[in-house]
Amino acid sequence: MSASAASAATRVVVVMGVAGTGKSTVGELLADALDVPYAEADAFHSPANIAKMSAGTPLDDTDRRPWLDAIGAWAHSREGLGGVVSCSALKRAYRDRLRAAAPGLFFLHLTGDRALIAERMAAREGHFMPTALQDSQFATLEPLQVDEDGAAVSVAGEPAAVVDHALAALGAPARRTPVPRTAPVPTLTTP
């Protein structure tokens, strides 16, 4: 493993973006490429948060605090060891809260236009985040700022291409074994 690949593999990456960008799919593929553990932010939600979102009600900042703290604790436990976690991290304040727990985080912001994201959200089945919350996700989104460690990557291409762009942003070499073109369309996301 090269020095840049070793450095990338010891970072904790937060795969962020609005619902429907494919945070889970890209996060899992990126973790595999870096050979580090992956954590799905949905697993950190309380049953009350899931019920609220399932009912079509957006979470407020009070709902998100314990969720962000749990994700931050996981990221802190992986500092220097590496890991990938999906988390919407839509607001700068949310990313600041995560960084307070794990200062070395790298934010990979998955971006896409509303039509593409709406199409992906409509196609997924069995997820608690209804498409009705898409507008609130875009309204809440505060893109990465220049002083935040991270990169924005478009999800317009295949998941494998998105991961290659993410690896380049991290300074890691591209995957040796390409992901099959039949890789699933990004579907599972977090608020």
Rank of each mutant, 00 (worst) to 15 (best):
L144W: 05
P186D: 05
G104Y: 08
F138I: 04
P130G: 02
K23P: 06
A48C: 03
A73G: 14
L59D: 01
A70C: 12
A51Q: 09
E40L: 08
G72L: 08
L141W: 02
T111L: 04
F138L: 03
L30H: 05
A123N: 13
L167T: 09
E148W: 10
M16A: 15
H45K: 02
G82A: 02
D61T: 05
I117L: 04
T57P: 00
R120E: 04
T25G: 03
A43H: 13
D149L: 15
A89C: 06
E28A: 14
D63H: 03
A39D: 03
S88F: 07
A55Q: 09
L133C: 00
P191R: 15
R92P: 10
A160I: 08
D164L: 11
S86P: 09
R65K: 15
S86L: 07
L105V: 09
A93N: 13
A100M: 08
M16G: 10
A93W: 07
G80K: 03
G112R: 02
M53A: 02
V36C: 02
P37S: 07
G104T: 07
T131L: 12
G17D: 11
A102T: 10
D61H: 03
D32Q: 15
P47A: 04
A183P: 08
D113Y: 06
K91M: 12
A8G: 06
A19R: 08
G171S: 13
